[in-house]
Amino acid sequence: MLHTTPLLSVRNLYKKFSRDIRYNLYYGAQDLLGDTFGLKTEYLQLRKKEFWTLADINFDLFAGEILGIVGANGSGKTTLMRLIADIYHLEAGTIYGRPEQKITAVFALAAGMQPLFTGRENIYIKGSMYGMGKTEIDAKMAFIKDFSELGGELDRPFGNYSSGMRARLAYAIAIATEPDIFIIDEALAVGDSVFKAKCFDHLKEYVRQPDKAVLFVSNNIRKVLKVATQVLVMKKGRIIYESTDVKAALNHYILNCLDDLDEEQRQRKLRRVQKYDM
């Protein structure tokens, strides 16, 4: 990688969750009262039934990178992305970035889409949710229409779209926001393979532009092999391995995170990683 422009720097990030629903809500109420009356509680102290969903997370994202993040379910990947996207409140640690940079995060492609409204109406709805104005969306309309390959289907109700069409439209809208940091969290799990291939090609193309990078969260080994330029492996809220050698990182992931696989399945996955021709 020749690029050295940093876009994001995450330092000493911690986040705790509660294992139990009632405790979760009780602590929420406690914190609400505490804040209102100015009582400070020490965030780095675990209370009963709490656990670290993220502990001591440190990494950098540079321009031109597609950083793959892998880890078993519940390892904290999505929580980390929600903190970076400012959806969850940052309590401990620092996320450095550029003040005006645009971060677009896609967690579920169809989130916020309205089934009773047409594809075109949904472009306005979703686009405006990402903070775009009318003129901005109008200017992007041709691109979205073209990228989603929906053509004449755009004026049909979104609810009548197939899951592939939905994914195509939603992905096209997200990318039309031209984010500096584009977060894709398992969002490409649906959709047809031709479109997925197109998305992967597009992502690689996208980060060639100056000052753009992608955070790509997925458990699908093949997808990570296809697009990632480097990989973080997460386990139980910690980064246990990081490397620019994607194959080595995936090896580590298979050997250390997939505890519920038997030896044979694991070997098969490992062979797939070894044989993959980047």
Partner: peptide
């Protein structure tokens, strides 16, 4: 990995 001194000159804390 960025050095701490570099972070503060190149980037600002978000959120």
């Amino acid at each position: 990995r960025l050095e701490q001194s570099n972070i503060s000159t190149l980037l600002t804390p978000l959120h």
